[in-house]
Simulated assay, not measured.
Amino acid sequence: MAPTAEPFTHPALFYADETDYLAGTLPFVEGGLAAGEPVAVAVPGQKLALLREALGGDADRVKLLDMEQAGRNPGRIIPRVLRGFADAHPGRRVRIIGEPIWQGRTAGEYPACAQHEALINHAFAGRDATILCPYDTAKLDEAVLADARVTHPVLIEDGVERASDAYAPDLIVSGYNLPLSRPPGAARLAYDADRLPDARHFALERAGRMGLPADRHDDVALAVAELTTNSVVHGGGAGTLWVWAEDDHLVCEVRDRGRLTDPLAGRRPARPGQIGGRGLLLVNYLSDLVRVHTGDEGTTVRCYFRLRRHDPSFRGVQTPV
């Protein structure tokens, strides 16, 4: 990829097969190593193995992460994966390959993925970094590729790099800020400051009844405690908690009268010594997926926890909702 005068660059790499993939990613990694730049690769496991083999001995000089695990929840990719790596190398330009969207991302996950790609542009504005995002043109919906043209200022296709004339990432952030429907049978609890412990116990009792593994109960308790406390402190003093099971997940949803005005809320790493402001960030770290809808009428935060362990052979839905 040609050098740029801009401190931050964010290209989308469109590839059709493994040959295309290596042609677009391998020189990117090797160029970073040759320039003395720290390099990280966070891609799905199959692609990670492909790149590791192609890099040979140089693989030991690259931070390699399986995005199917590290980025299962798109909401934690910016703080934990991208900023986590960049912040570990202060004063140095970094190169990162991040592939957050692959065949098998569910329709429920996709809006959070698209918003993540859009928000990278805000999270890294003015920073010395290049984040290359591969997109599989043979397996992803055309609607997904169209969104990639909106969230990335630069496109690379068939070895040709060009500016995207569709670039407008804030349209994706607002366009996927959609109301979240819930099933009619969801269990409901209204809470205020006096009932915060009740909300936590309410969620835990249903988590146990629905079969959530015992070692995830603390995750649910902490996530619900953070969200309901935020409601009391920032969301009008009260809120409503719903809990239900959906597609092998326990779902906990909190709704209150507050409005989120910061699109990067929950996606900034906590600063050393920071007091407060960690609630939504912690929820992103604990959950397998987080969806948010905010507007004048209030804010809904929904977090998902897998009910059973399984190999990440992901489901085949790829159409946005």
Rank of each mutant, 00 (worst) to 15 (best):
A107H: 13
Q46K: 14
Q115I: 08
L178D: 12
G237M: 03
P11D: 05
M1C: 11
G32Q: 01
E30G: 01
L132H: 02
P100T: 04
V39S: 03
R92Q: 15
R162F: 10
P312A: 06
P169G: 01
E297A: 15
A190N: 13
Y285C: 09
L145V: 11
S181P: 12
K63H: 14
A238W: 04
Q46I: 12
A265D: 10
R80E: 14
P134G: 08
M210T: 04
L250C: 09
L281G: 02
Y110K: 13
L145N: 11
E297K: 11
M210S: 13
D60A: 15
F14N: 01
G32W: 01
D147T: 13
N230Y: 02
D262N: 12
L227H: 01
R95V: 02
V41L: 10
R93N: 08
A107W: 11
I275G: 07
Q69Y: 13
A5Q: 13
E30W: 02
L307W: 07
D215W: 09
L289C: 03
P134Y: 08
A270Y: 07
I275W: 13
D165L: 11
V150K: 05
A225F: 11
P179L: 01
R267V: 01
R259S: 08
D20I: 01
T130M: 12
Y167D: 01
L222D: 12
P11W: 01
G24P: 05
G56N: 07
P197R: 03
G279M: 00
R83L: 13
P320F: 00
I96G: 00
D141C: 11
G84T: 02
T137M: 14
Y304H: 14
W242S: 10
R306Q: 13
R291N: 12
G75C: 06
N284H: 14
A245E: 15
Q274K: 04
L212R: 00
A163I: 04
P184N: 03
A138S: 15
R315L: 14
E109S: 14
D17R: 00
W242Q: 10
D247S: 14
L282V: 09
V43P: 09
P197M: 04
R162I: 05
K139P: 04
T300R: 09
A88P: 07
P90T: 08
I77Q: 02
L280P: 04
E226N: 03
L189G: 08
E30K: 11
G211D: 07
G266L: 00
R267D: 03
G57W: 09
P100E: 05
P74V: 01
R95N: 06
G298M: 02
A146K: 14
Y21V: 01
A40K: 06
A225D: 14
V43H: 06
L140K: 08
P27Y: 03
M67N: 13
L289Q: 10
N284D: 04
V321Y: 12
L171D: 13
V224Y: 06
D170Y: 08
V173D: 11
A40I: 08
V290W: 04
A187Y: 10
G236M: 02
V290F: 07
I96N: 02
P11K: 00
P213Q: 00
